[in-house]
């Protein structure tokens, strides 16, 4: 999978890396057990500081998307990880999105449709890859 980082974007680089790896797992570009590049390699490729990549990897590992081990480096955990820890976070983000939808004057149905459409897009990408 290609990881692309936009230095002009408002979102911090470690968040961009984090998000792209999550997207990659969801879309099936990154499979369970697959190794991610080492912190040094990724930092060098993108042209950022080691700490930036470290931060992204640590965040991914904290949220359970990847496993960080001293020997094997970063490994993708894959689909179907235990989601008890991440639920509050997910609910939080969703709450904000729902609030934004309400402010925009969207109906509940429209909001739900939008959500399931995005879900299906990513999910179909993964199933198409298999």
């Amino acid at each position: 999978m290609l990881i692309t980082v936009d230095f002009l974007s408002d979102s911090p680089i470690y968040i961009q890396i984090y998000e792209q790896i999550v997207f990659g797992i969801a879309a099936g570009s990154l499979c369970s057990g697959e190794s991610l590049p080492s912190v040094r390699r990724l930092a060098e490729d993108i042209g950022v500081n080691l700490h930036t990549v470290n931060k992204a990897y640590r965040l991914l590992s904290d949220d359970g998307y990847i496993r960080l081990e001293h020997r094997t480096g970063a490994q993708v955990v894959g689909i179907g990880l235990s989601h008890a820890d991440i639920m509050p976070y997910l609910t939080d983000r969703l709450r904000l999105l729902a609030a934004q939808a309400v402010v925009l004057g969207m109906s509940e149905r429209e909001f739900a449709n939008l959500a399931s459409e995005e879900y299906r897009k990513i999910d179909s990408k993964r199933t198409a890859g298999k």
């Binding site: 999978m1 290609l2 990881i3 692309t4 980082v5 936009d6 230095f7 002009l8 990659g24 990154l30 697959e34 190794s35 991610l36 590049p37 390699r41 990724l42 490729d45 993108i46 042209g47 950022v48």
Partner: peptide, 11 residues
Amino acid sequence: ISYIGVSYTGS
């Protein structure tokens, strides 16, 4: 310098 950095995850 470009404002985009790219890396490939393949081993």
